[in-house]
């Protein structure tokens, strides 16, 4: 029982990560390797704000806006020209890998490759007891944020006019443009939201570890990809379920089999799901993507 709760707590982190990735990857089909760096830059922006004595909610907002702006800049400077030239899918992958190297190196130089302490004052820390089990507060907040973000995204994508525009652009950009949708605006909005969500995930991960470094996002990126693949492409609720399931699998594998398996779970999940059931839990079957 306690293991399941630990798993769900870890899974909440993953779910929050997944929700940030699912918009750009799941909906728009762009595999953004710079997502981890945007997450890390957002955490550092929040850290800088905290050092200035800004209260926690405002610092989180600062981190979100910084990461969102960075994310939009990445889209405008690199991905939009690639789209305009109808570059093959792989160009996006390689371009974002290049950008991620540049962003990592800048941050590494700036921080002297040191791990910085992340102040936890103001964050909900500690644990409370439910039916004799310890439930960590921070992870409950993360799960709540993930679910709120999921509900917000689902409402936005399915029920509002601009959400319909996003889906139209995802389905076919040229047709959407002919119908009067400003596709660049749609991309900018999506990248801003994705960057903001990445920053939230990064800040909470930093708060739960009480530290942050230039490379703290790197390990999270493939976990986020595993969450999306497990949950199913383009499915927002899949990101939550995939995240929770991955967290539980990881904790079970660590405690019942061997702790050495912890690091390999995400990669094994990606390979296994891609080979066995490429559409994941909730994804649509798409032959072209298999």
């Amino acid at each position: 029982m306690q293991q399941t709760i630990n798993g769900l707590a870890l899974g909440s982190t993953y779910a929050l990560l997944g929700v940030g990735v699912t918009l750009v990857w799941g909906v728009l089909g762009i595999l953004n390797f710079a997502h981890a760096q945007i997450l890390t830059w957002g955490s550092f922006a929040a850290l800088a704000a905290l050092h200035l004595g800004v209260p926690v909610p405002l610092a989180i907002l600062v981190g979100m806006v910084a990461a969102g702006v960075l994310s939009v800049l990445l889209d405008l400077a690199v991905l939009a020209p690639l789209r305009a030239r109808k570059a093959p899918e792989f160009s996006f992958v390689v371009a974002t890998i290049g950008v991620s190297l540049v962003l990592t190196t800048i941050l590494r130089t700036y921080t002297d490759a040191q791990t910085e302490a992340f102040p936890r004052q103001g964050f909900p820390v500690g644990a409370f007891e439910v039916a004799g089990q310890n439930v960590p507060r921070l992870q409950v907040v993360m799960l709540a944020i993930a679910i709120v973000a999921m509900a917000g995204l689902a409402f936005w994508l399915n029920r509002t006019r601009s959400g319909r525009a996003v889906r139209a652009v995802a389905h076919n950009r040229e047709t959407a443009e002919l119908l009067g949708v400003n596709s660049q605006l749609v991309f900018s909005i999506c990248f801003f939201v994705a960057g903001g969500l990445a920053a939230v995930a990064g800040i909470f991960v930093a708060a739960s570890a009480a530290q942050v470094s230039y490379s703290s996002g790197d390990g999270l990126l493939l976990v986020a990809f595993a969450v999306i693949i497990l949950g199913g492409m383009g499915s927002v609720k899949g990101a939550i379920v995939g995240g929770l399931v991955l967290g539980v699998i990881e904790v079970y594998a660590t405690s019942y089999v061997s702790s050495v398996f912890r690091e390999i779970i995400a990669f094994a999940t990606i390979l296994a799901v891609l080979v066995a059931r490429p559409s994941g839990f909730f994804g649509k079957k798409e032959a072209a993507r298999v």
Binding site: G29, L31, E89, F90, F92, V93, L222, F225, A226, I229, I264, A266, F267, A268, I270, L271, L274, V275, P278, A288, R289, V290
Partner: peptide, 20 residues
């Protein structure tokens, strides 16, 4: 298994293989 995948899925599958 890797060659069954297409596009970014192939990129991701092969990266997962290398990382594993």
């Amino acid at each position: 298994p890797v060659l069954r995948l297409r596009g970014i899925y192939m990129a991701l599958g092969s990266l997962a293989l290398a990382q594993a």
